[in-house]
């Protein structure tokens, strides 16, 4: 499903170039889940941005389902995301001017789905927010906002779900409930899941674990850890 070959990412900063990723090689099978762990600044979020096609690697190639997304132009990557990808952010990134229902409907509307609202309603029902359809993000709790974000990530039935610290902003119980929702929904959809987390318990729920440090995937003691 996912294949990354010698992926590098260098960002330009005022103080000079920063080598964020330094030669990532990674393979993830379709329908499996992988947790990426590592200290802050190790390059986890940048890897996610590359896999989502939000950025292009400075060097190396990324294939998803046989499509070399690193070779697509900006518009093609946007189209690809719309068809294949669901994203979950740590800060939720709901659009503050839209209601919960409208936020969830956006990916479907982007795909030209005339029944977007109905599908969005079902998705919100599935995450237990059927009664909060018309609330704006500022009127929802953190857990509720992340559930809206989950509904949005899954509503278009993506084949790949990328999650960046999906429970990082939530308290213990809410986080656990959120994780249950995420894993069950992904399994139900048969999608591939790559998640980034600091939480070992959350990582442990994935099929495999990859550990990052200093922009590289490194060997780790866990049998679930996979390294280049």
């Amino acid at each position: 499903m996912i294949r990354a070959e010698d992926v590098h990412l260098t960002l330009r900063a005022q103080s000079g170039p920063v080598n964020v990723l330094r030669g990532i090689d990674l393979e993830v099978a379709a329908g499996s889940s992988i947790g990426v762990v590592g200290p802050s600044g190790s390059g986890k979020s940048s890897l996610l941005a590359l896999l989502a096609g939000l950025e292009r690697p400075t060097h190396g190639r990324i294939f998803v389902d046989g499509v070399e997304i690193s070779a697509l132009n900006e518009n093609e990557r946007a189209d690809w995301r719309r068809r294949e990808l669901g994203i979950l952010f740590q800060s939720f990134h709901l659009i503050s001017t839209l209601t919960a229902l409208e936020n969830v409907a956006v990916p479907l509307e982007l795909a030209g789905d005339w029944a977007a609202d109905a599908h969005a309603r079902e998705a919100l029902d599935a995450v237990g927010l059927g009664h909060r359809l018309d609330h704006r993000p500022t009127q929802l709790s953190g857990g509720e906002q992340q559930r809206v974000a989950l509904a949005r990530a899954l509503v278009a039935k993506p084949r790949l779900v990328l999650a960046d610290e999906p429970t990082g902003n939530l308290d213990g119980d809410t986080a656990s409930h959120m994780a249950d929702l995420l894993f069950s929904a992904v399994a139900e959809a048969g999608a591939t899941l790559l998640l980034i987390t600091h939480d070992p318990a959350l990582a442990a729920r994935c099929d495999r674990i990859a550990q990052m440090a200093n922009g590289k995937l490194v060997q780790a003691p866990s049998p679930r850890v996979e390294a280049a």
Binding site: L54, N75, A78, D79, R81
Partner: peptide, 16 residues
């Protein structure tokens, strides 16, 4: 900006 970036992350083309 966040809304625009989010829309793009959700598959909206930059021009759109």
């Amino acid at each position: 900006l966040t809304a625009m970036a989010t829309l793009r992350a959700l598959g909206g083309r930059p021009g759109w």
